[in-house]
Design a protein around this nucleic acid. Structure first.
Lengths: 304, 304
DNA sequence: CTGAAAGCGCTTACAG
DNA sequence: CTGAAAGCGCTTACAG
């Protein structure tokens, strides 16, 4: 593979000047049809594609937002991404996306970054020279970064009281060894009501958890909740009769599983909007340590 | 808002040359700590962010792939996007995404484009000067564009025979007035087996469709299938006992609805890989009208 | 209708 | 450790 063709290559082959090539490529006025055809033919022959960089340097271009999300296969991230795409599009921004696993060089391709940076701490994908960064639900405070924080205490308390009012006495909270904010929030909320929850590993399924004899399962997220629901159904355990199940995320598909999954929902449009607002503030240097808070709410459906 | 700061602004404020600024920004060797600090302070004060374009012009940058998908809220598009992100990342490409609704200027931000261009025909988002384009499941042939075509005849025939073998005699095929390739494929397959399907509008739900007294519903896609399943359950109609339901897309979540949805699945990893291969060929000018074919397969689950 | 000149913001050798 | 010069690929006035 040789060096890609540039505008001067095309100009040479077509026997014209550089700006005549520009005129032909962008279908501008002031060029004879014959010349245009000759230029276009040369461009095709050389497989010429104008460089985004040369062009961007001289024409005002759309700003580009880097979006760092988890696996899009999880509707939670997909829905957030969808909202960000829409909102960013309305503001005239382009969006480059990366999942933590992919090695895309966000720093070179974006003017600012938002996302779940907690997902990709090892290679600091956001450690660009002075790039504005807004973290969503970050595990810790990063100086200079904007933050969209989640308020979950209220909704968690609502969920816990709801469960207790329905007779729950032996809840199991599934988590990664109590490391997540959601897991800790649930544990504290149960204790505040005088009930000691049973901790369990997030990965566990139904036959595994039966030993704990729980009357409620707090899943790590909705997707895990779906899995538990399916496993419980296979095992012939009645939900919510024998065991109640609650998820976290508020996925729309939760309406389609059986029984419909109760969950802690968050308004992702609000989250996306807040993140976008903050990133604009930061890129204009208007804000030092910008923070927005978005609250979860408990949505009681049929699984509790 | 004034003009954004450039490297010369920082150099002037810090009282150094441009390349000393570069050295400081990128933490390069050959600069005294004191100078670096002074430069960094000036950069922060001016809210300086190096221009991607200036940089891209002079350093080899990652190529950028434009990805045009439908609403990411549909897991079908989300899963494809996820795969493309991973595959593109492995090849060192960045990915800019746009949903048809968003007005992001893909042409200025990408070196090549793949996606469901059929979704955004009105404003030819891909009509860039000579950009390589690969269309997935395109409604019509566009000269010069690569294509990943779907082969659905075989899987559709399998699905139809499966339905007939289970006693189906009055199938309803939901479509947008018979305009979709999937809808036509099902209608033809039923006719080939001697059964005339009842056409219906894609938007219709269960109470609406009851009048046709169907014993099978072919949903436009899995998401529609989920909705029908839910409506049928509410109405107390037994699936698959009284009515069988089949979707199209092969969503993984189909495993979690009740009953598990039978569907026409396609391997999205294969689709993404083919699209990426083609786009690389095209951007290297190696291929004139490149085409790959990926086949659906029928996945019988519990709803039929 | 066509072209010579200047400049966009950055980095890479090369001098000092 | 620091800077003057050249150049990356393109477009925008300005001449002709």
């Amino acid at each position: 593979m040789t060096r890609p063709a540039t505008i001067v290559d095309v100009a040479r082959v077509a026997g014209v000047s550089r700006q005549t090539v520009t005129r032909a490529m962008h279908d501008m006025a002031g060029i004879s049809p014959a010349t245009r055809d000759r230029v276009l033919a040369a461009a095709r022959e050389l497989n010429y594609h104008p460089s985004r960089f040369g062009r961007g340097l001289v024409k005002p271009a759309a700003r580009t937002l880097g979006l760092l999300v988890g696996d899009l296969t999880n509707p939670y991230y997909a829905e957030l991404a969808s909202t960000v795409l829409r909102l960013a599009g309305e503001r005239g921004w382009n969006v480059v996306m990366a999942e933590p696993g992919s090695v895309a060089d966000l720093t070179g391709g974006a003017d600012a970054v938002i996302g779940f940076t907690g997902l990709a701490l090892d290679p600091p994908a956001t450690g660009a020279p002075n790039l504005p960064v807004v973290e969503i639900d970050p595990p810790r405070v990063q100086p200079g970064h904007g933050r969209v924080e989640f308020e979950r205490a209220t909704a968690t308390r609502d969920a816990v009281r709801h469960l207790l009012s329905r007779g729950v006495r032996r809840p199991v909270v599934l988590d990664r060894a109590g490391t997540s904010a959601r897991g800790r929030a649930f544990a504290e909320a149960f204790r505040a009501e005088g009930v000691e929850p049973v901790p369990a590993d997030r990965e566990l399924g139904w036959p595994d958890l039966a030993g704990a004899a729980p009357d409620a399962l707090v899943a790590f997220n909705d997707l895990d909740g779906f899995r538990l629901l399916r496993d419980l159904a296979s095992a012939g355990v009645a939900v919510p009769g024998e065991v109640k199940v609650v998820g976290v995320d508020g996925l729309a598909v939760g309406e389609f599983v059986t029984p419909r999954l109760s969950t802690l929902a968050i308004d992702l449009t609000e989250v996306a909007g807040a993140a976008l607002d903050l990133v604009v503030e930061l890129s204009q240097g208007r804000s030092e340590a910008a923070v927005r808070v978005v609250a979860h709410r408990f949505v009681a459906r049929d699984s509790t």
